[in-house]
Design a binder for these strands. Structure first.
Length: 561
RNA sequence: GGCCCGUUGGUCAAGCGGUUAAGACACCGCCCUUUCACGGCGGUAACAGCAGUUCGAUUCUGCUACGGGUCACCA
């Protein structure tokens, strides 16, 4: 077989040589130790947690080492592509602080375009480049065309299915598909010419020379030492539309773009043998690999499953809707990424997570379960350290899109809103009421007359006359100018007047001697003012509410009894 | 089923041949407290199993079990 002739037959329009292409992608001039990484999603939908996770690692590793972080769009499967997905991906990633040095970006016109010297960064636009290397492989006898159509393939599949040959038997060499594949290798030049003359489409398959009985030692930066069985599968390099498969595009692109570290999910481990073979055939130096463990979820049987789209907590856009601040999500990701992050953060509370010395060695090799409890805890801590001004701004912004009526209420009175969020904020032991912006409304919505309602009722064991007397007593002595001590002394006095204990210790020592206690009196006021049994510090609440609202709410409650 | 990866409390995890096997979240109790939230103190709870190497295995090796992944002209 004259491979050069075959190559010319298959790729008549390819005139460039691999060297010509290489010349356009010169080695990068970067400082020692700089890492070049890339996030390479296929534009088939939204960003999900399982995608944000590795992209954070790529970003950290590149930027921490003074390297380059790229975005490559793997749009090689037109069938699965979703309109506008790439743009959405970029926006969502940016929302989570993932910014790229080069790659696909959103241009002024809102469309995807390139930034950087190693593009194009959308694989669909790199066709000619792949073909140069495909031609090279053919000319060296390491790849061959297969003219079997999809229909014929489906038919073979049906034959196997009928013969009950399952995937497990596939390697037993009994299947019709396997048989056909073996024959396809023996195609002659004349047959190729005939097919080409007839305009038949073909796929390009690699001619695998591996022996799966032989293992190649391989070191993965996360998994450690591995044994990879050699690849013996003639996998597809170019699909019949001339577009490369992931495997081929990965090898060509990561080599040309100068990727030093390939970071991807561990579901790629089984095809690593193919990639090693491709890099060898192509004469490319193998980059370093990090196969990271998948984020898991619990299925209905209590088993761990890979967190995939559709799962609760998968779609990053859902986090926005739920009101999670991106900073909190990033922080949570850091705690999952590096187990020593929390310790570092405790000592460097005011520093951004980008200051943390991220370390590959501290990464777990097994998949972890997504934990909302932990996310919420991380969120509460972060939000508790924000200023009232920042919280006001963020809650308002969130509500404007997800709860517009409430948002408008907040936007109408920003100073009032800020004074609400200032309650219990600042200081050494700040309140931790909010894990999400959506938590704000149930927490402090009662401040607004427009949505204030009485949610909790008084316990029936209390005499309505007592409640009424307490409320009236308060109204009679209330002075918003009182400091907290004077204010509380007045409430104590009211308690005494209606026969309630004004001192909890005395009450606990002898509960039968009283009809109630100071806590009960406080509760009478609290329900009248906030509509709830639980609320932030009542003195602060009254200060923020202002005298008019305080009196109006208490009077209204009194009159309703 | 073949191949590959993994397995320390409910969850995330320290540990890298000798430890009372950290810490965080969750849960429970107590304290603080006019409620809640915060904070403080304390508690329940783990090395998947079996062999082997070793004076000694959570740590090294092998097997088993369990879990995960993968086996496309998808990535």
């Amino acid at each position: 077989m004259d491979y050069q002739l075959l190559a010319d037959l298959l790729f008549p329009n390819v005139t460039e040589t691999p060297d010509d292409v290489e010349a356009k992608f010169p080695p990068r001039q970067l400082p020692e130790g700089a890492k070049v990484t890339r996030f390479a999603p296929s534009p088939t939908g939204f960003v999900h947690f399982g995608g944000l996770f590795p992209s954070t690692i790529c970003e950290r590793l590149a930027h921490q080492s003074g390297g380059v972080f790229m975005l490559r769009i793997e749009d090689t499967d037109a069938k699965r592509e979703v309109e506008g997905a790439a743009e959405g991906l970029i926006r969502t990633l940016a929302h989570y602080g993932i910014h790229f040095d080069e790659g696909a970006v959103i241009g002024e016109d809102g469309k995807i375009c390139d930034r950087g010297n190693y593009g194009p960064y959308c694989q669909s636009q790199r066709g000619p480049i792949y073909h140069v290397f495909a031609k090279k492989l053919v000319s060296e006898g390491r790849a061959y065309p297969v003219f079997t159509t999809q229909e014929e393939l489906d038919a073979l599949n049906a034959v196997d299915k009928k013969a009950e040959i399952k995937a497990k038997d596939w390697h037993e060499d009994q299947s019709a598909q396997r048989e056909a594949m073996r024959k396809a290798r023996e195609i002659t030049l004349d047959e190729v010419k005939a097919h080409l003359a007839a305009g038949d489409p073909f796929v390009l398959r690699i001619l695998a020379d591996g022996d799966p009985e032989k293992k190649t030692p391989f070191t993965d930066l996360i998994k450690g030492k591995l044994e990879i069985p050699e690849n013996d599968e003639d996998f597809v390099l170019l699909k019949s539309d001339g577009i490369p498969t992931y495997h081929f595009a990965h090898a060509v692109d990561d080599h040309l773009m100068g990727t030093t570290h390939v970071i991807r999910g561990e579901e790629w481990l089984p095809s690593l043998a193919k990639h090693i073979m491709l890099f060898r055939y192509l004469g490319f130096r193998l980059p370093k690999f990090m196969h990271i463990a998948q984020i898991m979820r619990l299925d209905e049987n209590g088993n761990k499953k890979k967190l995939s789209k559709r799962d609760m907590g998968a779609n990053m856009d859902d986090y926005s809707r739920m009101g999670y601040d991106p900073a909190c999500v990033c922080e949570y990701i850091m705690t999952l990424l590096n187990s020593n992050y929390e310790e570092w953060h405790a000592q460097n509370a005011d520093k951004p997570y980008t200051d943390f010395p991220f370390n590959i060695k501290k990464m777990s090799s097994s998949g972890c379960l997504f934990d909302f409890d932990k996310l919420n805890d991380v969120s509460k801590n972060i939000i508790s350290r924000m200023s009232a001004e920042e919280v006001t701004e963020k809650v308002t912004a969130w509500a404007m899109t997800y709860d517009p009526d409430f948002g408008k209420l907040l936007a109408k009175a920003p100073a009032f809103t800020e004074s609400i969020f200032a309650i219990g904020r600042g200081g050494k032991k700040p309140r931790k009421d909010l894990a999400t912006w959506a938590d704000a409304k149930p927490y402090m919505g009662f401040f607004f007359d427009e949505i204030f309602t009485i949610e909790d009722a008084y316990d029936e064991r209390f005499d309505k006359a007592d409640v009424k007397a307490a409320l009236n007593g308060f109204l009679a002595t209330y002075d918003p100018a009182d400091d907290m001590t004077v204010w509380f002394d007045k409430i104590k006095a009211i308690a005494r007047e209606i026969g309630y204990a004004d001192d909890m210790k005395a009450y606990k020592a002898n509960p039968e001697a009283y009809r109630g206690n100071i806590a009960d009196v406080s509760m009478f006021l609290r329900v009248a003012l906030t509509g709830k049994l639980n609320a932030p510090d009542m003195y602060a609440v009254m200060q923020v509410l202002g005298e008019a609202r305080v009196r109006a709410r208490i009077e209204k409650m009194r009159d309703s009894l």
